[in-house]
């Protein structure tokens, strides 16, 4: 009896663990299968065509891809320096009394759902952008900024964690040689924690590119490529969030599924690079 139960338990847990892999494989195959129709209809034009006009059954994903890339790039450019600053402050500068309350509140802010950041962006940040740069305020620029604020807590927390892995004895030796704080940070901590820091930036990038709710409110879902950042734009997740419930033809659905597949492949690749290349090395090195 015990033997039987023992075997049953072992097999059951193994089966469920394998089910995790199966689900992931299922997600990829299902999305692929659903997007076949669109792939056959438009082939590679799907990612090079700039016109997205569902009423004419024309589906070009380039504006959405462009929007995803540019808004994520903007968010990274704005968030990375601030995140490094916050991480330096938290790991090296802050007095002990401030370290843990500030650190904990940053971690808690990372837990706030992104839809709240989006809502704040719509009601409080859009008017400011409208006043400063004109236009409607709903734009690529707004999306990039709101996105950067949304990923900041996560990025700052993981960067700080990476910096904190530097052994104290290394830092102390550098101080003993007369190094200033900045000398220690740039010559000891950053080289030591480099892989971890870069890994966490890439991980944040992977999250930002798939982020939906923080940008849906403030981007406008306009399928147009414009070099002017103050114009409304769209991104892959924004298109999906806005149009999935509106799609009315098989080709429309299939195109949206192809967008989902594209997004999944992009973020899966980015996150894998972060995990396998940068964060893995850190684990062995540590």
């Amino acid at each position: 009896m015990n033997l039987l139960l023992d075997k049953l338990f072992a097999h059951m847990t193994k089966f469920i663990a394998l089910a995790v892999l199966l689900i992931v494989a299922w997600i990829f195959t299902k999305l692929f299968q659903q997007s076949l129709f669109s792939m056959q209809a438009s082939g590679f034009d799907f990612i090079t065509e700039t016109k997205w006009a569902p009423n004419l059954e024309k589906f070009g994903a380039l504006p959405a891809i462009y929007g995803s890339v540019i808004s994520t790039f903007l968010a990274m450019v704005l968030a990375v320096p601030v995140a490094i600053g916050v991480a330096i402050f938290l790991s090296e500068l802050a007095p002990a009394k401030l370290k843990s309350p500030v650190g904990v509140s940053i971690e808690l802010l990372a837990a706030i759902p992104s839809v709240i950041y989006g809502m704040w962006g719509l009601f409080y940040f859009v008017p400011i952008i409208r006043d400063i740069v004109g236009g409607v305020g709903i734009s690529m620029l707004t999306a990039g900024i709101v996105l950067s604020i949304m990923i900041l807590p996560f990025m700052a927390a993981v960067t700080r964690d990476a910096m904190n892995t530097t052994p104290d004895i290394l830092k102390e030796s550098a101080y003993a040689l007369g190094g200033t704080k900045w000398d220690v940070i740039k010559d000891v901590i950053i080289p030591y924690a480099k892989a971890g820091i870069i890994g966490s930036f890439i991980l944040a990038l992977g999250r930002a590119i798939g982020e939906t709710m923080a940008v849906t409110f403030v981007m406008g879902n306009v399928h147009k490529i414009s070099a002017d950042l103050t114009q409304p734009a769209t991104s892959i997740p924004v298109t999906l969030a806005n149009e999935f419930t509106e799609a009315d033809s098989p080709i429309y659905y299939s195109s949206l599924f192809e967008l989902s597949l594209l997004l999944l492949v992009i973020s899966f690749t980015i996150i894998s690079i972060a995990k396998f290349y940068f964060l893995r090395r850190k684990r062995i090195g540590a």
């Binding site: 394998l18 997600i27 999906l240 969030a241 999935f244 997004l263 999944l264 973020s267 996150i271 894998s272």
Partner: peptide, 26 residues
Amino acid sequence: AEIIRDISDIMMSAPSIVIGAFVYAI
């Protein structure tokens, strides 16, 4: 076990809207 760990870790950061699209399909 290591493969399951890695894949599951990646899924933790995967875009949730894609999961929505998948469930829509199934």
